[in-house]
């Protein structure tokens, strides 16, 4: 059982606050660190991995400090986001070197390469690898010593769907084995598919934490805004506002459209086509106007 604890951790660079007073505990199983780009996920992972000192607060692994503690790497495996990785070596040479640095031998490297299914390309230079292959070799280098904590920064970036499925399977398996696995992503669907537990970070702050269903509910239950054009906007507006799932409608003359705010996402999505059909109104445009992740996240922060 390995538990990573962050206690009131902040990190600033000059005047910029990258991480703002975050307290969280990451236990065994797969945890997703979700947040839009620039939210501070990488800064957070770098502090968890001991590559950056918190400006204030502490990061500990089972009570031992992570910063300036080389021995902690016997228990941590890290898959960095950056691509650079001794391109002049072959995949096998790279993983063997990583094993040796842990005091292990070729056998550990062979096992790790088999785990990520990279044996077929292990004798090619890393410089010739695709992004997905690099990702898997990085993964193998992080697994050689069978760490109890695995940290992955945006591991699915640049992977094709098949590679993504394979890596998800691998991480799931590691979580089921009782290892503590934490990965970051800015894509909700990705996190949802893999992690039971989600930590949401927005603008350096800890916005939400919990089971993925709870986070999903928070995200879908927020007020949704739609831009709607129809054959009779006013009649449609009158019919929609009669239902409690709609909290506000504005007639936008410039756009020639309605701006609808719905509070009950599920109900509204079935209501709209039904109302239109009952009133003989043709729907011309229905488009969500605030589906960007940033707006979803900023709602979460306010919630």
């Amino acid at each position: 059982m390995t538990t990573l604890s962050l206690d009131h951790v902040s990190r600033w660079f000059g005047n910029v606050v990258a991480v703002n007073d975050i307290t969280m505990t990451i236990g065994p199983g797969v945890t997703g660190l979700l947040g839009p780009n620039g939210a501070g996920k990488s800064t957070l992972i770098n502090m968890m991995g001991g590559f950056l000192a918190p400006s204030t607060g502490t990061v500990t692994l089972d009570g031992r400090p992570v910063w300036r503690n080389e021995e902690i790497y016997r228990h941590i495996g890290i898959v960095p986001e950056r691509e650079a990785m001794y391109d002049f070596l072959t995949g096998r040479e790279f993983v063997v070197a990583n094993a040796e640095l842990h005091g292990l031998g070729d056998e550990a490297a062979r096992k790790a390469l088999a785990t990520v299914e990279m044996e077929y390309a292990q004798d090619r230079k890393i410089a010739t690898y695709s992004k997905g292959m690099r990702q898997r070799v990085k993964m193998a280098s992080a697994l050689v010593h069978e760490p109890s904590l695995l940290l992955l920064d945006e591991p699915f970036n640049g992977m094709d769907p098949r590679q993504r499925m394979q890596l998800m399977g691998l991480l799931r398996k590691m979580g089921d084995e009782g290892r503590t696995v934490l990965f970051s992503s800015h894509i909700l669907e990705e996190v949802e598919q893999l992690a039971r537990h989600i930590e949401v970070v927005v603008a350096g702050r800890h916005a939400a934490s919990g089971d993925y269903r709870k986070i999903r509910r928070l995200m879908t239950d927020r007020p949704h805004r739609y831009l709607v054009r129809s054959s009779d906007d006013r009649a449609l507006a009158a019919a929609l506002i009669a239902d409690p799932s709609t909290s506000g409608i504005e007639v936008d003359h410039a756009e020639g459209a309605l701006r609808v705010q719905a509070v009950d996402f599920g109900r509204f999505t079935t209501l709209l086509p039904k109302v239109a059909r009952d009133h003989g109104i043709r729907l011309l445009t229905v488009s969500p106007s605030d589906e960007s992740l940033e707006s979803v996240f900023s709602y979460l922060v306010a919630a």
């Binding site: 080389e70 941590i76 005091g103």
Partner: peptide, 12 residues
């Protein structure tokens, strides 16, 4: 290029 991370993330 950041590849030094593979040396630093070791019990060395």
């Amino acid at each position: 290029d950041g590849s030094v991370v593979y040396l630093l993330a070791k019990p060395l």
